[in-house]
Simulated scan of single mutants.
Amino acid sequence: MPNTNDILITTLRKAHLEWGSHRHTTSRGTVYGEGYLQIPIAKARLLNITNSNLNGGNITYVCNSSDGFLNNVELKATGSMASGNIYAKQFQGSGNLKVLGDWFSLVNAVIGDKVEIKWTSPTQIILTKL
């Protein structure tokens, strides 16, 4: 689990900004407005950001944004680089895959922008578009 004041900076790509429409899968239809934040595997290991493959691990984070748009929103650390891997590869809205897409829209995020994820406690984060 990350520590208070840990920081992760991630760079937005098209797939992060257009998750629901820019993908190569037929598992579900196109959904506009979805978004996620990538967690590079090296950072996931360094900060110990785990997914549901780790029994008893934390996957849920309370999220705010420095601009005030996101207020106590629940994000989940999900996905993995390989089946069974315990390290998460992304943050996504819990039950609302559009919550980050809405924030990206509000802050006019574009490909190449950087987002700072700062832990204010081991289970709370604040997002800032840099």
Score class of each variant (00 low, 15 high):
residue 117 I to W: 06
residue 67 D to V: 07
residue 102 D to I: 07
residue 16 H to F: 06
residue 61 Y to C: 01
residue 119 W to M: 03
residue 2 P to Y: 04
residue 97 L to N: 13
residue 36 Y to P: 00
residue 25 T to I: 00
residue 48 N to D: 13
residue 101 G to I: 05
residue 10 T to R: 14
residue 83 S to W: 02
residue 117 I to T: 06
residue 47 L to Q: 07
residue 91 F to N: 07
residue 89 K to M: 12
residue 86 I to W: 01
residue 129 K to I: 13
residue 126 I to C: 14
residue 95 G to W: 10
residue 3 N to R: 09
residue 125 I to Q: 09
residue 51 N to D: 05
residue 71 N to F: 05
residue 93 G to S: 03
residue 109 A to Q: 04
residue 119 W to A: 11
residue 76 K to D: 08
residue 109 A to S: 13
residue 58 N to R: 15
residue 47 L to C: 06
residue 87 Y to N: 09
residue 128 T to C: 02
residue 43 K to D: 15
residue 14 K to F: 02
residue 31 V to R: 14
residue 95 G to I: 09
residue 76 K to A: 11
residue 95 G to N: 10
residue 116 E to C: 00
residue 17 L to F: 08
residue 72 N to D: 13
residue 3 N to Q: 14
residue 114 K to S: 10
residue 86 I to T: 09
residue 59 I to G: 10
residue 42 A to I: 09
residue 74 E to N: 13
residue 83 S to A: 15
residue 18 E to H: 12
residue 81 M to D: 10
residue 111 I to Y: 07
residue 26 T to C: 04
residue 11 T to G: 03
residue 109 A to V: 05
residue 114 K to V: 02
residue 124 Q to M: 00
residue 41 I to C: 01
residue 105 S to W: 01
residue 36 Y to D: 04
residue 46 L to P: 00
residue 57 G to F: 08
residue 31 V to G: 06
residue 19 W to V: 00
residue 129 K to T: 05
residue 103 W to E: 08
residue 3 N to W: 02
residue 89 K to R: 14
residue 49 I to E: 01
residue 43 K to M: 12
residue 101 G to K: 03
residue 76 K to W: 12
residue 62 V to S: 09
residue 9 I to N: 11
residue 67 D to F: 01
residue 61 Y to S: 04
residue 94 S to R: 12
residue 34 E to M: 15
residue 3 N to F: 07
residue 77 A to Y: 05
residue 48 N to T: 12
residue 120 T to E: 07
residue 9 I to S: 10
residue 123 T to F: 01
residue 20 G to R: 11
residue 32 Y to M: 10
residue 71 N to A: 07
residue 86 I to P: 15
residue 19 W to R: 13
residue 72 N to Q: 13
residue 65 S to P: 10
residue 100 L to V: 07
residue 71 N to V: 00
residue 32 Y to C: 05
residue 125 I to A: 09
